[in-house]
Protein backbone atom coordinates (compact mmCIF):
# COMPACT_ATOMS: atom_id res chain seq x y z
CA UNK A 1 0.00 0.00 0.00
CA UNK A 2 1.10 3.52 -0.69
CA UNK A 3 -0.36 6.97 -0.50
CA UNK A 4 -1.25 8.74 -3.74
CA UNK A 5 -2.29 12.33 -4.29
CA UNK A 6 -4.87 12.67 -7.04
CA UNK A 7 -6.60 15.62 -8.63
CA UNK A 8 -10.06 14.46 -9.58
CA UNK A 9 -12.48 16.91 -11.16
CA UNK A 10 -10.42 19.76 -9.78
CA UNK A 11 -10.33 18.45 -6.23
CA UNK A 12 -7.30 17.10 -4.42
CA UNK A 13 -7.78 13.61 -3.05
CA UNK A 14 -5.52 11.28 -1.18
CA UNK A 15 -5.88 7.54 -1.34
CA UNK A 16 -4.04 4.66 0.23
CA UNK A 17 -3.89 1.92 -2.36
CA UNK A 18 -1.84 -0.89 -3.78
CA UNK A 19 0.27 0.83 -6.50
CA UNK A 20 -0.80 -1.78 -9.04
CA UNK A 21 -4.48 -0.89 -8.63
CA UNK A 22 -6.04 0.45 -11.82
CA UNK A 23 -7.36 4.00 -11.60
CA UNK A 24 -10.86 2.64 -12.29
CA UNK A 25 -11.02 0.84 -8.96
CA UNK A 26 -9.47 3.74 -7.06
CA UNK A 27 -12.25 5.94 -8.43
CA UNK A 28 -15.00 3.44 -7.75
CA UNK A 29 -13.95 1.95 -4.43
CA UNK A 30 -11.67 4.45 -2.72
CA UNK A 31 -13.31 7.64 -3.93
CA UNK A 32 -16.84 6.15 -4.27
CA UNK A 33 -17.22 7.70 -7.70
CA UNK A 34 -19.14 4.97 -9.49
CA UNK A 35 -20.07 6.84 -12.66
CA UNK A 36 -17.00 5.29 -14.29
CA UNK A 37 -17.78 1.68 -15.11
CA UNK A 38 -16.09 -1.70 -15.14
CA UNK A 39 -17.01 -3.55 -18.31
CA UNK A 40 -14.09 -5.72 -19.34
CA UNK A 41 -10.91 -4.75 -17.51
CA UNK A 42 -8.85 -5.07 -20.69
CA UNK A 43 -9.57 -1.80 -22.52
CA UNK A 44 -11.81 -3.57 -25.00
CA UNK A 45 -15.11 -1.86 -24.16
CA UNK A 46 -14.40 1.73 -23.12
CA UNK A 47 -16.93 1.79 -20.24
CA UNK A 48 -14.15 2.98 -17.93
CA UNK A 49 -13.10 5.99 -20.03
CA UNK A 50 -12.01 9.11 -18.12
CA UNK A 51 -9.86 12.04 -19.18
CA UNK A 52 -6.30 12.06 -17.84
CA UNK A 53 -4.70 15.41 -18.46
CA UNK A 54 -7.34 15.94 -21.12
CA UNK A 55 -6.69 12.66 -22.90
CA UNK A 56 -9.47 10.07 -23.09
CA UNK A 57 -8.02 7.19 -21.10
CA UNK A 58 -9.16 3.67 -20.26
CA UNK A 59 -8.92 3.76 -16.49
CA UNK A 60 -9.25 -0.01 -16.11
CA UNK A 61 -5.67 -0.64 -17.21
CA UNK A 62 -3.91 2.42 -15.82
CA UNK A 63 -2.12 1.44 -12.60
CA UNK A 64 -2.36 4.25 -10.09
CA UNK A 65 1.44 4.22 -9.81
CA UNK A 66 1.75 5.44 -13.41
CA UNK A 67 -0.67 8.32 -13.02
CA UNK A 68 1.82 10.85 -11.68
CA UNK A 69 0.37 14.30 -11.09
CA UNK A 70 -1.89 14.30 -14.14
CA UNK A 71 -5.37 15.61 -13.37
CA UNK A 72 -8.36 13.31 -13.87
CA UNK A 73 -11.78 14.29 -15.16
CA UNK A 74 -14.69 11.88 -14.87
CA UNK A 75 -18.28 11.71 -16.05
CA UNK A 76 -19.36 13.31 -12.78
CA UNK A 77 -17.76 16.58 -13.91
CA UNK A 78 -19.24 16.68 -17.41
CA UNK A 79 -22.32 18.67 -16.38
CA UNK A 80 -19.95 21.53 -15.55
CA UNK A 81 -17.84 21.18 -18.67
CA UNK A 82 -18.70 23.36 -21.64
CA UNK A 83 -18.55 20.52 -24.16
CA UNK A 84 -19.58 17.89 -21.66
CA UNK A 85 -22.86 19.60 -20.88
CA UNK A 86 -23.71 19.98 -24.56
CA UNK A 87 -22.97 16.32 -25.18
CA UNK A 88 -25.04 15.18 -22.19
CA UNK A 89 -27.94 17.34 -23.31
CA UNK A 90 -27.71 15.92 -26.82
CA UNK A 91 -27.69 12.39 -25.37
CA UNK A 92 -30.83 13.15 -23.35
CA UNK A 93 -32.56 14.91 -26.23
CA UNK A 94 -31.87 12.00 -28.57
CA UNK A 95 -33.03 9.52 -25.92
CA UNK A 96 -29.85 7.55 -26.56
CA UNK A 97 -29.59 5.36 -23.50
CA UNK A 98 -31.09 1.97 -22.99
CA UNK A 99 -29.46 0.01 -20.18
CA UNK A 100 -27.11 2.98 -19.92
CA UNK A 101 -24.15 1.12 -18.47
CA UNK A 102 -21.73 2.03 -21.26
CA UNK A 103 -22.90 5.61 -21.67
CA UNK A 104 -20.49 7.27 -19.24
CA UNK A 105 -17.67 5.95 -21.37
CA UNK A 106 -19.43 6.81 -24.62
CA UNK A 107 -19.92 10.38 -23.46
CA UNK A 108 -16.32 10.72 -22.27
CA UNK A 109 -15.09 9.55 -25.68
CA UNK A 110 -17.51 11.84 -27.50
CA UNK A 111 -16.41 14.84 -25.44
CA UNK A 112 -12.75 14.10 -26.19
CA UNK A 113 -13.58 13.77 -29.88
CA UNK A 114 -15.51 17.02 -30.05
CA UNK A 115 -12.97 19.02 -28.07
CA UNK A 116 -10.38 18.18 -30.68
CA UNK A 117 -12.64 17.84 -33.72
CA UNK A 118 -15.75 19.98 -33.29
CA UNK A 119 -17.15 19.05 -36.72
CA UNK A 120 -16.40 15.34 -37.12
CA UNK A 121 -17.29 13.42 -40.26
CA UNK A 122 -19.21 10.14 -40.09
CA UNK A 123 -15.91 8.29 -40.46
CA UNK A 124 -14.31 10.29 -37.68
CA UNK A 125 -17.22 9.50 -35.39
CA UNK A 126 -16.92 5.81 -36.21
CA UNK A 127 -13.17 5.81 -35.60
CA UNK A 128 -13.16 7.88 -32.44
CA UNK A 129 -16.08 6.03 -30.88
CA UNK A 130 -14.88 2.74 -32.38
CA UNK A 131 -13.56 1.31 -29.13
CA UNK A 132 -16.65 1.96 -27.04
CA UNK A 133 -18.89 -1.05 -26.88
CA UNK A 134 -22.63 -0.70 -26.33
CA UNK A 135 -24.13 -4.16 -25.90
CA UNK A 136 -27.64 -2.76 -26.38
CA UNK A 137 -26.15 -1.33 -29.59
CA UNK A 138 -27.64 2.15 -29.28
CA UNK A 139 -25.20 3.25 -31.97
CA UNK A 140 -27.74 4.85 -34.31
CA UNK A 141 -28.68 7.33 -31.61
CA UNK A 142 -25.10 7.75 -30.44
CA UNK A 143 -24.22 8.92 -33.94
CA UNK A 144 -27.17 11.30 -33.97
CA UNK A 145 -26.30 12.69 -30.55
CA UNK A 146 -22.67 13.32 -31.47
CA UNK A 147 -23.81 15.16 -34.57
CA UNK A 148 -26.37 17.16 -32.62
CA UNK A 149 -23.76 18.15 -30.04
CA UNK A 150 -21.42 19.10 -32.86
CA UNK A 151 -24.02 21.43 -34.34
CA UNK A 152 -24.64 23.02 -30.95
CA UNK A 153 -20.93 23.61 -30.42
CA UNK A 154 -20.59 25.74 -33.52
Amino acid sequence: MAKFQLTVNGQRKEVNADPTTPLLWVLREDLKMTGTKYGCGVSACGACTVHVDGVATRSCMLPISLLGDRPITTIEAMANDRVGRVVQDAWVEKDVVQCGYCQSGQIMSAVALLKETPRPTETQIEESMGGNLCRCATYVRIREAVQLASQRLK
Binding site: T74, D95, G100, Q103, S104
Partner: peptide, 9 residues
Protein backbone atom coordinates in the same frame (compact mmCIF):
# COMPACT_ATOMS: atom_id res chain seq x y z
CA UNK B 1 -33.67 7.53 -16.56
CA UNK B 2 -31.82 9.34 -19.35
CA UNK B 3 -30.17 12.14 -17.38
CA UNK B 4 -29.04 9.93 -14.54
CA UNK B 5 -27.55 7.51 -17.06
CA UNK B 6 -25.66 10.36 -18.73
CA UNK B 7 -24.18 12.05 -15.67
CA UNK B 8 -22.90 9.02 -13.82
CA UNK B 9 -25.38 9.32 -10.96
Amino acid sequence: DSRAKCDGS
